[in-house]
């Protein structure tokens, strides 16, 4: 109904985007899990928020009917890689620092993420 007839390959694409983004984030040196207590942690990790960004960007492209080659498979892999690169290198150029962290401390925050 809501998942269309061609939904199963699309679900696989989302799964592939999640796996690729987590693996690339780990390769880039992001921690697998946030610091403890996890529910208050500001540290970017491979589990969160990398897959959320990958899923969101891929869903926007699929909603715009941009599928590219191999029924979206290549797009899923590319978005997974780009999301991990974004979280590692560009995250704090786009989003504000966590509360209590000044502009000068940004480097130390990025070192924490490394």
């Amino acid at each position: 109904m809501i998942i269309e007839a061609n939904g199963i390959p699309f679900l696989l694409n989302y799964l592939i985007a999640i796996i690729v983004s987590i693996v690339v984030a780990l390769v880039l040196g992001l921690p697998l899990l946030p610091d403890k207590p996890k529910r208050f942690s500001w540290v970017n990790s491979a589990i969160y928020p990398t897959p959320i960004i990958a899923l969101g960007l891929l869903a926007i492209l699929f909603a715009l009917k941009i599928v590219w080659i191999y029924n979206g498979l290549v797009l899923a892999i590319v978005i997974g890689i780009l999301s991990a690169l974004f979280v590692k290198y560009l995250f704090y150029y786009v989003f504000p620092n966590p509360p209590g962290v000044n502009e000068g401390d940004k480097n130390s925050l990025e070192e924490d993420n490394a």
């Binding site: 809501i2 998942i3 989302y14 959320i52 899923l55 891929l58 869903a59 926007i60 909603a63």
Partner: peptide, 13 residues
């Protein structure tokens, strides 16, 4: 559909 829910999660983030 499904895409809308995933975009919603991204926007909420």
């Amino acid at each position: 559909g499904l895409e809308g829910g995933l975009i919603a999660a991204f926007l909420v983030f």
